[in-house]
């Protein structure tokens, strides 16, 4: 069983945060997908607010979160670089490696890297174009 493309892309963002040391766990990814579904989503703002509420980035890392969000969903590599340079938000180098940015949606095979928990829990997620 694989995730629909839209859900896989959302789950990919949660994994990206995890790989940069935000400390979120797969259980939160499931909640994130549920939250996006509950909100519609009607806009990227819904997705951003769902991510803030469920993946719970630490307040002192909000700038880095915003940069990664823009990089992941809009392919804004400059924003990602800005976030990386923030002296208070050093990216952990030993956390299993940072995923390449940006990753175009088309090149991300649905569900390829999703954990079994994420795959199971997102079973009911509707396929939807996010951009």
């Amino acid at each position: 069983m694989t995730l629909p493309v839209a859900a896989a892309h959302l789950a990919g963002f949660a994994r990206l945060l995890r790989s940069t040391g935000f400390g979120n766990v797969p259980e939160q990814t499931v909640t994130f997908l549920d939250a996006v579904r509950l909100l519609g989503p009607r806009s990227m703002t819904d997705i951003r607010e769902a991510a803030l509420a469920t993946l719970a980035p630490q307040p002192d890392r909000h700038r880095e979160f915003e940069a990664l969000f823009r990089a992941w969903f809009w392919g804004d590599a400059v924003a990602a670089a800005d976030g990386k340079d923030d002296e208070e938000t050093q990216v952990k180098e030993d956390g299993g490696g940072r995923e390449e940015l940006p990753v175009p949606e088309e090149s991300f095979p649905a569900g390829e890297m999703a954990s079994s928990t994420e795959t199971l829990a997102a079973g009911s997620f509707r396929t939807k174009t996010l951009t």
């Binding site: 909640t31 939250a35 509950l38 909100l39 803030l52």
Partner: peptide, 21 residues
């Protein structure tokens, strides 16, 4: 603000506690 209203909405609908910092 919108973020707080969304968080309250999600907490109620997901049946989860709401943590406000």
């Amino acid at each position: 603000d919108d973020g707080l209203a969304t968080a309250i909405f999600l907490a109620i609908r997901l049946g989860k506690p709401l943590l406000l910092e």
